[in-house]
Nucleic acid binder design. Structure first.
Length: 803
RNA sequence: GCCGGAAUGGCGGAAUUGGCAGACGCCCGGGACUUAAAAUCCCGUGAGACUCAAAUCUCGUGCCGGUUCAAGCCCGGUUUCCGGCACCA
């Protein structure tokens, strides 16, 4: 008999909601546990089949923790600002807020149908003025502390979306969202000084339990390097400051390169003999998109600044200066000393311009390629550094430079400040008034939230201004300081803003006095387990850690890291192994799956599909196995015999399974936890089971398949004290009972398996060998040969070596 | 180019971290039930050799080599694939 999942699932979802069993209680005396999933962007497509994978995983953790006696916070909300909604609004001439409401409704229905144990009473929505009031408030705090500032700068401009992109949103030189061409454009932008926290964002990684690949991605993104800043005198008078990680190669610096945007170029306009040529190169590189610059990376280009030379401080040799776009103004000092013998890029450039290549670190063949090995090289042609290893030479030259005031040690980061403004409508308005007399004037806290005005058209403008700029009666205001005519900032925040602190809002979501009360923040502390996609490792994760550290500095949060533990799930691919997409026609809709198999099966399959951390292809046939398993569990309710105590026959297997499931959930090995429960059910079919046996299975299966197990719990009369299965206590296993007293041990002869023998647990070596050689097959194998060695690994294996 | 990760049956994947390779599931084959089909239940299922069959043996974790009584796991080399970063001095 098959179970009627449609009726059952709805029934228990209603009961859970009615009983409010998943509500977290602030200040509860139980130990707290905060499990967090990345709140979704409520897109027009509805819930993707990939969403339930991480949601189910942490739902299992949350449900298990509740059963283990924790006060669990497992919240849900909507990261609802964003471009797709705005683009859809433009297309359909509807309000973004309306579209958002509509999409949220659909996502809510879908999430509820999955039976996730979210605390719906704490639902947040980043587009709700009650929420973004505090996003704006945190921004103003940053402004107050000098961490938010406006600056004219070259930004990434998507020619298709007509919007400024953060560096993080430019992927392979094109717009991450639409794939459009990205060019450099000068614009005045709000910037957040995340670089001020670079070192702390790096150090903090050592104090948290993040999976290694997340830490590595973060470290690479922050990109800390240590080296020296060195001053080169020039014949023009000005000093040219460079940054290098290889000061030991200073004797090999045969020319210099500065970025085309370097300010000294303008300063030297009158002295540079070929200024027209230089100017032309500058303009050409300015027009290049990032994509072109990357594409042309192999071919080095540049122009020498004729009439000016730099002087190498170690040997006072005059060397030429070039401009080239392979030197970036945004990193280091925008100028480098070129050591073609020991830097690949400099080597390539030197080959193009026929510049001298001098070997100063021996060990390679600099005729063929630059020798960059720092482990084995020995300094040559370097006067007082000769004979030293690279590390020693670095130390010595750094001291030498410092003594003469020519240079000093310096740490640099690849991380750049966060371009924080967007010229779009559907985002949090930046709560700043621009007054011709008073400058940037922040709104008073009492004027927050600054809401979005309703507008007729959300079309972005070609000038690059936000659609808000057209709403004159919103833009034109009086300056709060001087009372004169002023204008509002019309840029909005990027959608990374609302997600940078949402986990704090969940702690106290209805507070209209503070972003969350201190009691709530202190009670919930850090997020205990945060799971999310790898694609957010360097964006959202870094941004929110930065905001959190800022709030920590203000004394508003008790920990300087928001997330104690971070894990990541693999994607669910299409059945053909490719990424799911409409254009590939391999999209699976969770609503259809639920209709065909029920939610419990979908949840189970998403967990059984493979290693949680790895991508896995969807299979329309493999999911049937999970359905069959649940059907088999269901049938057990009829097969189970009476019994109040766990049967002797199943006792050992039950305890082993409890142990396996208990441990596997903690290490995210959901697939093997389910396999263990399947094996147990197979055993129940072989050996029979009683109701007490089935009761245990029902409890440990509950976090995975919560609906069917509640129904079984009720139908078999396990309900006590009016409690739901979700409120039951997680079973403890008896370690003793997971250990067998007799054990099958394989016997090898010369490393080849010949037999298995049955031995008592922990029996001694002599007995093991005696039993082994008395086995017929083993005896045959060693007959007429000398036993050279006997290896007995207790309870594992016996290996007899013969000659 | 650099930094991660991976490679195991027809398929998704297991393997207590050096100890019976292939758990669990899918697919497939055979049988039972059925007028029949679906569903369900039972049996089989890495490849090969010898067998009527059973038994038995050999080979087998991308490739080459090493360490070890014993290697999917450790070491050296190599190929391929996936992900991230990418002129960061």
């Amino acid at each position: 008999m098959r179970y009627d999942y449609t009726t059952i699932e709805k029934k228990w979802q209603d009961k859970w909601e009615e009983a409010g069993v998943f509500h977290a209680k602030n200040g509860c005396e139980k130990p707290k546990y905060y499990a967090l999933i990345e709140f979704p962007y409520p897109s027009g497509q509805g819930l993707h089949i990939g969403h339930p994978r991480p949601y189910t995983a942490l739902d299992i953790v949350a449900r298990k923790r509740r059963m283990q006696g924790y006060n669990v916070l497992f919240p849900i909300g909507w990261d609802a600002f964003g471009l797709p909604t705005e683009n859809y609004a433009i297309k359909t001439k509807t309000q973004p807020a309306e579209i958002t409401q509509h999409n949220i409704k659909r996502f809510t229905r879908q999430c509820k149908a999955m039976g996730f144990s979210f605390d719906w009473s704490r639902e947040v929505n980043t587009t709700d003025p009650k929420y973004f009031k505090w996003t704006q408030w945190i921004f103003l705090k940053m402004f107050e502390k000098g961490l938010a500032y406006k600056k004219k700068m070259a930004v990434n401009w998507c020619t298709s979306c007509k919007i400024v992109l953060a560096n993080e949103e430019v992927v392979d030189g094109v717009c991450e969202r639409c794939g459009g061409t990205v060019i450099r454009k000068e614009k005045s932008q709000w910037i957040l000084k995340i670089t001020e926290y670079a070192q702390r964002l790096l150090d903090g990684l050592d104090t948290v339990d993040f999976i290694e690949r997340v830490k590595v991605a973060n470290r690479n993104w922050i990109g800390r390097s240590t080296g020296s800043e060195v001053d080169f005198a020039t014949t023009a008078g000005e000093t040219l400051k460079v940054y290098t990680t290889r000061p030991d190669t200073l004797f090999g610096a045969t020319y210099m390169v500065i970025s085309p945007e370097h300010p000294l170029v303008e300063k030297w306009a009158d002295i540079i003999e070929n200024f027209d040529e230089v100017k032309k190169y500058q303009e050409a590189s300015k027009r290049k998109s990032d994509f072109e610059r990357t594409e042309l990376a192999k071919d080095k280009t540049g122009v020498e600044l004729k009439g000016i030379k730099a002087i190498n401080p170690v040997n006072n040799k005059e060397i030429p200066i070039f401009i080239s776009d392979y030197v970036l103004m945004t990193y280091g000092t925008g100028a480098i000393m070129a050591v073609p013998g020991h830097d690949t890029r400099d080597w390539e450039f030197a080959k193009v311009f026929n510049l001298p290549i001098v070997e100063v670190v021996g060990g390679g063949d600099i005729e063929k390629e630059a020798f960059t090995d720092v482990e084995t090289g020995i300094l040559v042609n370097s006067d007082f550094l000769n004979g030293l290893e690279v590390e020693e030479a670095k130390k010595k030259i750094t001291e030498w430079l410092e003594e003469r005031n020519l240079g000093h040690p310096k740490v640099n980061f690849k991380l750049r400040d966060w371009v924080f403004s967007r010229q779009r409508y559907w985002g949090e308005p930046i709560p700043i008034i621009i007054c011709p007399k008073c400058g940037f004037v922040p709104l008073k806290e009492s004027d927050l939230p600054l809401e979005l005005p309703k507008v007729e058209s959300y079309e972005p403008t070609d000038t690059g201004e936000s659609p808000l700029a057209k709403v004159r009666d919103w833009v034109e205001v009086k300056c709060p300081i001087c009372g004169g005519d002023a204008e509002r900032e019309t840029d909005t925040m990027p959608n990374w803003a609302g997600s940078s602190w949402y986990y704090l809002r969940y702690m106290d979501p209805h507070n209209d006095k503070e972003f969350a009360s201190q009691e709530a923040i202190n009670y919930w502390g850090q997020v205990d387990w945060y799971n999310g996609g790898m694609e957010h490792a360097t964006l959202h994760l870094l941004y929110s850690r930065f905001w959190h550290k800022f709030l920590y500095d203000l004394g508003l949060v008790p920990y300087d890291e928001p997330y104690a533990k971070r894990t990541s799930h693999g994607m669910i691919m299409g059945e053909n192994g490719e990424k799911m997409s409409k254009s590939r026609g391999n999209v699976v809709n969770p609503d259809d799956v639920i209709a065909e198999y029920g939610t419990d099966t979908l949840r189970l399959y998403e967990m059984f599909i493979g290693d949680f951390e790895k991508a896995a292809p969807w299979s329309t046939t493999a999911i049937k196995g999970c359905k069959r398993f649940l059907d088999r569990v269901w049938v057990l309710t009829e097969l189970a015999t009476e019994g109040d105590e766990i049967s002797k026959a199943n006792e050992s297997s039950i305890h082993k399974t409890i142990k396996k499931v208990t441990e596997d959930i903690e290490t995210m090995k959901f697939n093997t936890a389910i396999a263990a429960m399947m094996s147990l059910v197979n055993e129940f079919y072989e050996k029979g089971c009683n109701k007490a046996d089935l009761r245990m299975l029902t409890i440990i299966l509950n976090p995975f398949a919560p609906h069917i197990t509640e129904e079984i719990w009720e139908s078999l009369g396990f309900v006590h004290d009016g409690l739901l299965l979700a409120q039951e206590t997680w079973p403890a296993y008896d370690e003793e009972k997971t250990i067998d007293n007799v054990i099958e041990v394989p016997v090898q002869v010369n490393g080849r398996l010949r037999a298995t023998v049955t031995l008592p647990m922990d029996c001694d070596k002599e007995e093991a060998i005696r039993t082994a050689i008395s086995d017929e097959k083993v005896a045959t194998a060693i007959e007429g040969k000398n036993i050279v060695k006997q290896i007995v690994v207790p309870n594992k294996i016996i290996n007899i070596v013969v000659k």
